[in-house]
Amino acid sequence: MTIQTTRLSDPAVRGFVTAVNAHDRDAFLALLAPDATMADDGADRDLAEWIDQEIFSSNGHMEVDNESNGGRALIARYRNDTWGEMRTRWDFTVDEQGRIARFETGQA
């Protein structure tokens, strides 16, 4: 069963999912710490390049099925125009200012 985005526990993660689904790059970038990093399937990637390819230029969309770790770990059905839909895991590190310092994703 899908969790409504507005019911996600962690404010930064809720904002992340909202920005992805709204295709709002400015809102997305505002959620990230200045030196934010990310990894996909265990490999560190260039954040700007990855979000452009996997989210914003390919109509990325997340439907969250499960959250844990206080809302900072998600299982979601993620789809985009490049890869179609897949079951993915997302783990977030949120800094003291409430911004996302790191996220890791991959197939679940």
Rank of each mutant, 00 (worst) to 15 (best):
D52S: 15
M62K: 13
N66I: 15
A48P: 11
P34S: 06
N21Y: 05
I3P: 02
E54I: 02
V13S: 03
D44S: 15
I51G: 09
D24N: 08
D52Y: 09
R14T: 03
E67I: 15
H61D: 14
L31R: 14
A36E: 07
A48T: 08
F16P: 06
N66T: 13
F16C: 03
A36M: 09
S57M: 05
A22R: 15
V20H: 01
S58T: 02
V17R: 01
I55F: 06
A36V: 05
D44K: 08
F16H: 04
V20P: 04
I51H: 15
T5V: 04
A30N: 11
S9D: 09
E49C: 05
V13N: 01
L29R: 15
V13A: 03
T5R: 01
D40A: 14
A36Y: 08
L47R: 08
M1Q: 06
A19W: 02
V17P: 01
A12K: 08
M38W: 13
E67D: 04
R45D: 12
R25L: 09
I55M: 01
A48K: 06
H61P: 06
M62W: 12
D46R: 06
A33P: 09
F16D: 03
D24F: 03
L8F: 08
I3Y: 06
A19V: 03
V17H: 04
E49N: 12
S58R: 02
T6S: 14
L8D: 04
V64K: 02
A22P: 10
A27Y: 10
A48W: 10
T6E: 14
H61A: 06
D24W: 01
D52F: 10
V13D: 05
A12Q: 12
I55R: 05
D65T: 14
P11G: 04
R14H: 00
Q4D: 09
M1E: 02
A19Y: 15
Q4E: 13
T18G: 00
D44P: 11
A12H: 12
T37P: 06
F16R: 04
T5L: 05
L47P: 03
N21I: 02
V20F: 01
D52T: 11
D10H: 04
Q4I: 15
D10N: 02
D35M: 10
N66M: 10
